[in-house]
Design a protein around this nucleic acid. Sequence first.
DNA 1: GTCTATATGCGGATAGAC
DNA 2: GTCTATCCGCATATAGAC
Lengths: 215, 215
Amino acid sequence: MTLPIAARAVNTRERILRTCLRLFNDQGAATVSTNRLATELDISPGNLYYHFKTKEQIVEQLVRRFEQRLAPIQKSSPAIEAVDDFWLALHFTFEAIHDYRFVFRDADYLARTFPSARKRLQSIIAVSIATTRAQCSTLAEAGILRVNAEELQTLAFHIVFTATCWSVFAKLAADDVGDSADTGRAAYQVLTLLTPYLNEESRHYILYLRGKYRG
Amino acid sequence: MTLPIAARAVNTRERILRTCLRLFNDQGAATVSTNRLATELDISPGNLYYHFKTKEQIVEQLVRRFEQRLAPIQKSSPAIEAVDDFWLALHFTFEAIHDYRFVFRDADYLARTFPSARKRLQSIIAVSIATTRAQCSTLAEAGILRVNAEELQTLAFHIVFTATCWSVFAKLAADDVGDSADTGRAAYQVLTLLTPYLNEESRHYILYLRGKYRG
DNA sequence: GTCTATATGCGGATAGAC
DNA sequence: GTCTATCCGCATATAGAC
């Protein structure tokens, strides 16, 4: 009952991507060489080369997956009718970011080294800002968020900025070497940006949520 | 009228540091090898080695200078009596960050590769948060900023986060490849965080400043 | 598909002559 | 102080056998 050849091939390709993602997240995309990746997988460099001719191809595939992971979350924009919808979407987003944390962590290296990655990253950010603005806009129309057009834009920009860069900063500021997952803390930090602009009722709700994310 | 030998030596050392800073800022600390640095300086690798035995020593020296550059700005904390004092301090800070932008841009690489740099970076961030909190606290006592203790902490944290990571994000989000200096935009973005908590008078002042930093 | 073996180049670091 | 020459190791990439 061994798997057919085609399935085995898919499996190796899949193993490469999964393992690479893990190593990238743990050690940084710049640090993880193709050789080390092959060693970790217990396959030969030649075999790795058979599946991916360049490191760039692996990177692009992983970034593409990250993009696909974000897509359904962002599609939910119109359904954001209350603060906790926003909160939930934020949570999913941060989980995705955490699962692919190398993407933003090593953004500078990736953008510098792989032109294809650079384009994709910029696209992700542009889409994210647009989506976030749409979400905030929906909240504003529902009277939950009190902002003018300019504040809306600045807020959306700042939320995306926080989402993308938070893990870099958290890791840097942390005493320990590992990456404290704490996506809740990240979401909380973003929500704090929103707080002053919320109406009374929603602000109270935030204060309630806040209690759950402090220790 | 040639310079005495000692002075020449100091000069080469200084030239190394200056050129290295420029290359780091332009191309990234990870990308710039000691060999490329030597080539750019028109000196031999051996000569470079004479002045700095390791790349880490150069990095540490540069980070130390960045720290020293920040120090006098941070010492001015008690003198923050109005919003535009804060604004000015912010401006100086962002100028310093821009002049040493590789420090935060490549923070992950630096922290990973050079333990000495990691410690220094963490110290810089810790001091910055403390300083910022002190500044905000002064503003709060003067009735300019209306925040409770928790908001103060979160705000300080977020301000430092923005200051350190902004250039990374700005560069990533930008279409062009170069680094748009625009420290004004960065300072404006930080000030926006403060706005909702300001008293009436100061908020108007901010709105006035805002006009100067939009195109 | 997977392996072994290897080409080629660049990185940091260093010895020893001048 | 500065150079030339060079070691060593690791990176990416690849050819060719199985």
